[in-house]
Computed example of a mutant assay.
Amino acid sequence: MNLEFEQEPGEAALVFGDQIDKARAYTARLAQDSETFGLLGPRELPRIWSRHVINSALLVELVPNESLVADVGSGAGLPGIPMAIAKPKSHFTLIEPMERRATWLQTVVDDLGLRNVDVIRARAEEVQRTDFDIVTARAVAALDKLLKLLTPLTRGSQHRTILALKGSRAPEEISEARPRLQRLGFGEPEIITLGLGITSETATVVRIILQ
């Protein structure tokens, strides 16, 4: 394992609860396989828990039990796998177009025994399912483009919620996406900060719900 691999922070057990062993196993695999499969850059390993694994899991605060969730452009399984570990009563579908990453995701899901996770090797626009209650994305595209990619996946659901992990440019991206938001019938986006007072790195999420 890389010597720069971040040690587990104290808040990990709080975030993952009785699923912490699965979170540990996933984090170890992510660190071990990152270079081989092009998952995370070497500079990210010293922050693998705080910036990637825990940061992703924070989103489950916005996911009701029994939700059907799609993670588009899942890549290294972020945020989908940490969310699935932290929220075993919801079902997650990881959508990833690159063969080697999709294969890695399926192997990890099988090895960890994550029965609430499916993996689809496809681009978002190729997926035929439209029944997802919530669609997530992290580091995939600007919000305006994300709306075009993600919205069709929610058309068959009554809940139709998008959770996009974003950074400091979230307000600007919302402004740029406003014409598309209006055309698609979504309500006013919320910028939500998760993990305040709990984790060393908070998560900034743009939540958009169909009116």
Rank of each mutant, 00 (worst) to 15 (best):
V140D: 02
V109T: 14
L149A: 00
L105P: 05
D110Y: 02
E125K: 03
A142M: 11
A102F: 08
D118I: 04
N116W: 13
T107Q: 05
W104Q: 05
V109F: 11
K145M: 13
V140Q: 03
Q106G: 08
G113W: 12
A141Q: 11
I134R: 02
R138S: 12
A102E: 06
K145G: 02
D133T: 12
I120G: 00
F132N: 10
D144S: 15
E126W: 07
E125I: 08
L146I: 13
V109A: 08
A142N: 14
A122F: 09
V119N: 09
V135Q: 10
V127P: 07
D133M: 04
A141L: 11
T103F: 10
L114V: 05
L146S: 06
L105W: 08
D131P: 03
A122S: 14
I120M: 13
L105Q: 11
R138F: 12
I134L: 14
A142H: 14
T103P: 00
T130Q: 15
V135P: 01
V109Q: 10
R129H: 05
R121T: 06
R115C: 04
V135K: 03
R129C: 02
I134F: 09
V109S: 05
Q106I: 01
T103G: 05
A124H: 07
T130K: 14
R121A: 04
L147A: 02
L150I: 09
T130L: 05
A124W: 09
R115Q: 13
D118C: 00
A122E: 03
A139C: 06
N116K: 01
A137V: 11
D111W: 06
K145I: 14
D133K: 08
D110L: 04
R138L: 08
A137F: 07
D131K: 08
A142E: 14
E126D: 15
T107K: 11
D144M: 10
V109C: 02
R123Q: 12
N116D: 00
V135H: 01
K148R: 13
L147H: 02
Q128S: 15
F132D: 04
V140L: 13
W104F: 14
R123I: 12
Q106F: 00
L147R: 04
K145Y: 12
W104A: 11
D111N: 14
N116C: 10
G113S: 08
L147E: 02
A139P: 06
V135A: 02
K148F: 08
A139W: 03
G113T: 09
L114K: 05
Q106C: 00
Q128A: 14
T107G: 13
D118L: 04
L150K: 00
D111R: 13
N116Q: 10
L147V: 11
D131E: 13
Q128E: 10
N116T: 12
R121P: 03
A102M: 12
G113N: 05
D111M: 06
W104D: 09
A122D: 03
D118K: 11
R138W: 06
N116G: 09
G113Y: 10
I120L: 15
A102Y: 07
L146P: 01
V109Y: 08
A124V: 14
K148M: 04
I120R: 04
L112C: 07
V140Y: 06
Q128M: 09
A122K: 12
Q128F: 01
T103V: 14
V108T: 15
L105A: 03
D111K: 06
T107Y: 00
G113H: 09
R138A: 06
A141I: 13
R121N: 03
D133Y: 11
I134H: 04
L146W: 01
A102W: 10
D111F: 05
R123N: 08
A137Y: 09
